[in-house]
Write a protein that binds this DNA or RNA. Structure first.
Lengths: 264, 264
DNA sequence: AAACAATGTATCATATTATGGAACAGACAG
DNA sequence: CTGTCTGTTCCATAATATGATACATTGTTT
């Protein structure tokens, strides 16, 4: 390992916290130390501190550590920080009720799309889009829709620094030029449609939500199993309902929907 | 200020993070420093570190800080850490559908009850019980129900160290002896019922959920506006549905519901 | 039973790291 | 232009984090 990276203790603590994800919710001291390259003593001390503040909890019998309940407080706090989740909820619910498909709300974070709310379809065959799940901005309908309606300057910077476009399926766009054309098409139509770009067998319809400055806030998306996505009647119906929901939400968020070239 | 408290830098970072709650989702550097008694330079450095890891985000125009989106990843992770939220969801939904009242799921954390999931009533007049909300273990039906069915040793320790019982309303129990008697009554009946102990005008019905060791996992609770709570027919109906849901969830969590004195 | 191999945890001298006052750089108001 | 707020950077000093080592438990293997 190179020594280029100097890490202060806070960074260590954060990296430790970030290890506690759904796929691996529980860690032992030495296990974590080995995983991150920290000494067990360090991990132990950090975990102790995290524990006294409720950021992790220790199983009294196995002595292993897991995420603490303060995070539930942050779940609550996020609703104050990103008010669109609260405002958007009824619109997502209505859209799910209308279409019977899983609905989700997404924002841009760094180089990724992040799902910040979801209303799952009650159908037996349905898409799942858990809160917190991510995808790079070039893969999938919701991602491309965010990218398409993003601030032009930020989008341009993103597209130019875009190096390797790792494909997730055989349908993932991997050519920046193709991506550029598709983004234009999405802006022209007002919504994004894609099939199996991020997850095989999963289609996506996605429309933007704007604030009172006409700036992109989020996208509302439908995640639709391929078998239903390919039914043109159902898909068109979904598009209509989706656009209706996204525009209604934009209006509530303060967007004055002008005709045609309303945005600059 | 006394110098009794020594704080390492991680502790500072955690205390800073904990300031970002729903009531005050956005902070400036000096504002935070003043609030916590840290120097602006320290706060600044800590926030910088938190920012590079996505724990906070900085508004590019106001330069103020708010909670970052990594917390959405933790929302997801919590479902792996506390599987009962995932398992319990359909039961909560069914119970809400049956009763029309807001349903919530609670666990013990330290000295508090914490709400870890909620399904809100669609009625115009309804109780709200946001995820992450807390209450001391002596106040309210859900709290007392947790306390009543807790590990006897831990309960005894809690009751003995119980110093000031701050009342939330004029109905909050403030006498440890009264509390003791009520807990016994709750164990005898198998559920807790209370009115206006934590929030004026709000009633609560609450039943325990056990795991395969017969240990308390959580409580399922109904939060019912007083006007409907006082309708004995509705209340009894709710109790029946509540007990049914809590027992069904216990069974799924591995609890072998033995008759009568099944627990030690 | 006994030896073993894991685990989480405590200690301590060393050196790296955090600290806060002061100075800097913008934004905004008067 | 001036005054007063911001967030941010610098730097010598002092306090804190560090990992090797040892210890205490646990569960497993022999």
């Amino acid at each position: 390992m190179e020594q280029t990276e100097r890490s202060n203790s806070i960074e260590k603590a954060l990296r430790i916290l970030l290890c506690f994800q759904a796929e691996r919710p529980s860690w032992g001291v030495r296990e974590l130390g080995g995983h991150l390259g920290f000494s067990p003593a360090t991990v132990q001390r950090v975990l102790q501190t995290l524990k006294t503040h409720g950021f992790v909890a220790q199983d009294p019998v196995t002595r292993r550590y897991q995420l603490g309940v303060v995070f539930y407080a942050f779940v609550h706090a996020l609703k104050g920080t990103y008010p669109i989740t609260r405002t958007g909820r009824p619109f997502l619910q209505q859209l799910m009720a209308d279409t019977g498909e899983t609905v989700h709300l997404n924002i841009i974070e760094g180089q990724d799309r992040v799902c910040i709310d979801t209303v799952e379809s009650p159908q037996a065959l349905k898409a799942s889009m858990p809160i917190g799940s991510r995808s790079p901005l070039y893969a999938g309908g919701s991602s491309k829709c965010l990218l398409a309606f993003w601030d032009p300057e930020l989008r341009e910077r993103y597209l130019q620094n875009l190096s390797a476009m790792k494909p997730f399926t055989d349908r993932t766009v991997t050519d920046p030029e193709v991506l550029r054309r598709e983004l234009e098409e999405i802006r022209r139509r007002g919504y994004a449609a894609s099939l199996g770009e991020r997850n095989r067998g999963l289609g996506s319809l996605s429309a933007p939500v704007f604030d009172h400055h006409g700036q992109l806030l989020a996208t509302v998306s439908l995640a639709i199993p391929e078998i239903r996505y390919q039914d043109a009647i159902h898909r068109n119906f979904c598009v209509r309902k989706l656009l209706y929901a996204a525009r209604a939400l934009s209006r509530v968020m303060g967007y004055e929907s002008e005709e045609a070239t309303g945005r600059k």
